[in-house]
């Protein structure tokens, strides 16, 4: 049904968006927690900085990533020298670019969810003998679960569709960094490529539907897991 190249683009897209979502969500929970629970100097600045990818053109995000994580960039050079890891023009780099652009959306959703948990319930848990980590795992995160799922779904969808940052930072290398949107764009650059573009677009559409179905399942799982 799909050609080998189309399968490859699909696999790569899922990999890139999946990595972007997993790592993005871990960072989002951490930063959301800090922003929701602590007051410290520079908090507003941190908040604004974390939201920057949302308001910057994606190409600029890609360019900034290149400046920092590129082979010549300060972090990129260090990663290369110490770990032999290169991010620019690799699928891990595509995931980083997609994840950074999707991050503010995940952060927003997670933060609202954490702030929405009644602090009185946490106090109750504390008086019942639960320490800070214990409360986070048994009270706050389960109650914030719907917001976490929503954040992951929105983040995954955004990472799936990220174009500008990925092509700037990771280029459009088939089988390595050419995710669906990049493959669709590349197909349209070739005369007679409309059919390929249409098929790839249909795949993107199917992915979006699958993502929604998966999020419903996750929500139901969360409700059952919570024992309510």
């Amino acid at each position: 049904m799909l050609t080998a190249a189309e399968w490859e683009a699909l696999r790569l897209t899922l990999l890139v968006a999946g990595e972007a979502t997993v790592f993005g969500m871990i960072a989002a929970v951490g930063f959301a927690w800090v922003l929701a629970r602590y007051r410290f100097p520079g908090r507003v600045l941190l908040d604004a900085g974390l939201h920057a990818p949302l308001i910057l053109p994606p190409v600029v995000v890609g360019f900034v990533l290149l400046a920092i994580f590129g082979v010549q960039g300060p972090v990129g050079r260090w990663l290369d020298a110490w770990f032999g890891v290169r991010l620019a023009f690799t699928s891990a780099g595509a995931a980083l670019a997609a994840g950074v652009c999707a991050f503010p959306l995940m952060l927003r959703s997670v933060r609202l969810a954490i702030e929405g948990v009644d602090p009185k319930l946490e106090e109750a848990a504390q008086s019942l003998g639960a320490g800070a980590w214990d409360r986070a795992v048994t009270i706050v995160l389960p109650l914030a679960w719907p917001g976490l799922v929503a954040g992951a779904v929105v983040g995954f969808a955004a990472a799936l569709g990220e174009f500008g940052a990925v092509i700037t930072f990771a280029a459009s290398i088939p089988g390595e960094t050419q995710t669906l949107p990049l493959a669709i764009y590349a197909a349209l650059q070739v005369p007679g490529g409309e059919a390929t573009a249409a098929r790839l677009s249909a795949i993107a559409f199917a992915l979006a539907i699958a993502g929604l179905v998966a999020s419903e399942a996750l929500l139901r799982f969360g409700r059952r897991g919570a024992g309510a």
Binding site: D118, L121, E123, A124, Q126, G129, A130, D134, I139, A226
Partner: peptide, 17 residues
């Protein structure tokens, strides 16, 4: 969390989940 003091408020504060 280490006091071993039980607290009951007028709103029971049961964990809804």
């Amino acid at each position: 969390e280490r006091r071993r003091i039980g607290v009951v408020h007028q709103d029971a504060r049961l964990f809804p989940h």
